[in-house]
Amino acid sequence: MPNHVRAARSLGLLVLVLACVPGVGGDVVPPSTGPPPPAGAAGPPSPVFGPPMSAMEVLAGPARPSDLDVMTFNLRYAGSAGANTWAQRRPVMRTLLTLEQPDLIGTQEGLPDQVRDVAADLGEGYAHFGLGREGGDNGEHMAIFYNTARLRVLRSGDFWLSATPQVPGSISWGSAHVRMVTWALFTDRSSGHRFFAVNTHLDNVSENARRHAAELIMTTLAGFEKLPVVLTGDFNSPGDGTSQVHRLLTGRAGLRDTWTTAPIRGPAWATIHNYQALVPDGERDDWILTTPDVTASAILMNTYRDHGQYPSDHLPVQVRVRLP
């Protein structure tokens, strides 16, 4: 959807329902199921219900034509047993993504059918790419989704976070699982600017593997053409100075953490909640990093849920940026 149409649609929604939305980014409130009052009785006032709204637009207003909305989202791999199955979570995720309509989404953990489900739910205005971490279409994906009206892929690729990065399914450094990166060089159709999008998921067990992975990402980025970079991912490390990975990527690699650079910021939570109560100011494992030439204007952790059902065990993180 073109930015001017999105802006007009969003502004209309904002004016229409700002005063009556029961909780932006929170639970969708169901209508009353009680009996109607007797004829002629005044009864209690009827609640006013409006559609849920984009959390980013509530925080920062409609996007300008030069703004690029980016999301990182660990989807939680699809499961069919127990609580929080993919069948239960998919409709909530569909609503969240439809509301937010990011221009660029770096996802993690999506299984092949799950990636196809997300693609179907996003609709014809989006495309995606990325191999599975076992090679081909096998295993979890670091799929990147993008708005085709806004962005065009010039080239893309994948590499594995191992001593043999071009070998699909390769594993090194004591990593508990195969880990990888999916990346692309994009052109922004609205401005003609080019930039790299890079998406990853670091190991959840081995700090040594995470450190080596961060060094490989840093080395790979250094070999790219000197253009802006947006790095999305689940880093399985706290987004602060206690994390060796964060220090490496925001120090030696020269990237900037948009959570700390954006002047407008939503409430802070632990980004991994495991379907439990949110933890204020908890560990932030999901980050969006950029080169210093990219300007972040607003960022948030999206807490959207429907009748208590979250779309994933992670909160998606969204940032609004502007390319140089």
Rank of each mutant, 00 (worst) to 15 (best):
314 H>Y: 10
73 F>Q: 08
238 P>F: 06
232 T>L: 03
105 I>G: 10
39 A>Y: 05
220 T>Y: 10
212 H>N: 15
90 R>G: 00
152 R>Q: 12
182 T>G: 07
117 D>A: 10
210 R>G: 14
6 R>Q: 12
208 N>V: 14
128 H>P: 04
270 A>H: 08
293 D>I: 02
141 H>C: 12
299 I>V: 15
149 A>F: 01
201 H>I: 07
32 S>K: 03
233 G>Y: 07
195 F>M: 03
245 V>C: 06
106 G>M: 02
97 L>Q: 03
107 T>E: 09
281 D>E: 15
304 Y>R: 08
107 T>G: 01
84 N>D: 08
70 V>F: 02
252 R>A: 14
192 G>H: 08
103 D>C: 13
157 G>K: 07
141 H>A: 15
155 R>C: 14
19 A>V: 05
77 Y>S: 04
22 P>S: 08
76 R>C: 13
81 A>M: 09
318 Q>W: 12
194 R>C: 04
280 P>L: 13
219 T>E: 15
175 S>F: 01
278 L>N: 03
90 R>Y: 06
257 D>L: 07
113 D>R: 13
23 G>M: 13
53 M>H: 04
292 P>G: 13
132 G>M: 07
129 F>A: 01
286 D>H: 12
137 D>A: 14
47 P>N: 03
57 E>T: 11
290 T>S: 02
44 P>N: 06
165 P>I: 03
2 P>M: 02
61 G>E: 12
187 T>P: 02
294 V>Q: 02
249 L>N: 07
